[in-house]
Write a protein that binds this DNA or RNA. Sequence first.
DNA 1: TCGATAAGTCAACAAGTGATGACTTATGCT
DNA 2: AGCATAAGTCATCACTTGTTGACTTATCGA
Lengths: 197, 197
Amino acid sequence: MSEPKRRDKAATRAALLEAARRRFAEHGFDGTGVRDIAADAGVDATLIFRYFGSKQALFEAAVRVEVPEGLGRQVGDEQAASPEALAEALVREVVFADRPEHGGEHPLLVMLRSAGRPEVRARLREEVCEGYLADFAERLGGDDAELRAELVGALLIGMGLMRSVIGSPELSRASFEQTRGLVRAMVAALEGEKSQG
Amino acid sequence: MSEPKRRDKAATRAALLEAARRRFAEHGFDGTGVRDIAADAGVDATLIFRYFGSKQALFEAAVRVEVPEGLGRQVGDEQAASPEALAEALVREVVFADRPEHGGEHPLLVMLRSAGRPEVRARLREEVCEGYLADFAERLGGDDAELRAELVGALLIGMGLMRSVIGSPELSRASFEQTRGLVRAMVAALEGEKSQG
DNA sequence: TCGATAAGTCAACAAGTGATGACTTATGCT
DNA sequence: AGCATAAGTCATCACTTGTTGACTTATCGA
């Protein structure tokens, strides 16, 4: 029936990581025990400490994500993408992401379910503000550009929250295309409100 | 030094409730122990079960909030308040609320720190969707009114999240008045996007 | 002043937590 | 084949968790 399961450190580590992602995504940090994760992965719980050091370290590895170039911090020089287009890309990336290996959700949304923990909040702040909203402000222009950029961030992460944490009916059912025009309109409205243009 | 502390059921219950609100607001459900709450209140932990039944029931009592009339479900008939004005009132009420007895924050935001628990998510959905966004959709009009109402909800709760959970720099520092115009503009933009007007 | 009743305290349990170190077993090289 | 080493397991610790029931003590009317 089941093959005797060859010993493979890398595969075991990967299985642990995947099981952790799913558990943490669904139940949050505190709602997940190391034994649950290990059981899902089909290995012994102590391997978590062998391979990752601690439950906390496993969590950090599980929600680690690379910000795609061109979405957050700009690498080269201006690509001349409009704020609306950038916001649209962020919505697709973060809110409507399909990540089977993270339990279907973007790590940022996964972290929201563990927002009771200070370290998680700190990472959220870092990734949202510095990772994603960093050059958004420059792109917007005006002297309260940072504030307006954070409002866009609030809209995006609020959408993610409504979809995956709160589970509001319409946003949960909606497709990226359905929200696309509405988001663009809201972001565009922000451009017409520069306090010093 | 300290008076012998007269026995008073009501006062003890109230002290427990206040301590619970503060603890839950800061550390979330899982990050708070019944002994912590009791210590803050200066009473024995077992009184929590005497007066509330369980930790979970205490939490529910602690985050219970009455939706002010005129903000959520409409009681009488149309007051003809514009969606922008309604959104503005909601921002003031939820995002910029000053509630010393809840640790300074609106219960909805307090609940966000305990979003790992399914019951908390269910209450959030209920209060946000049915409590606050209920008649917002009618007010907006158009055939995707519910979706647009939820986008406003996403913006509002996203703002609260950025301020009190994530702690983004600009929104945390900003005053209600500073965000007012921007929020109005974003909500107004949504009205120009009715898919069937 | 006595005593009933309500208010508050104490000790403890049963289950679960993350984490550790010693042990066993499979693997792959010589 | 045999052995060193890496991979995986087991028993268990030290601690915390929510919760319970029996106990003590203050309060207030008769």
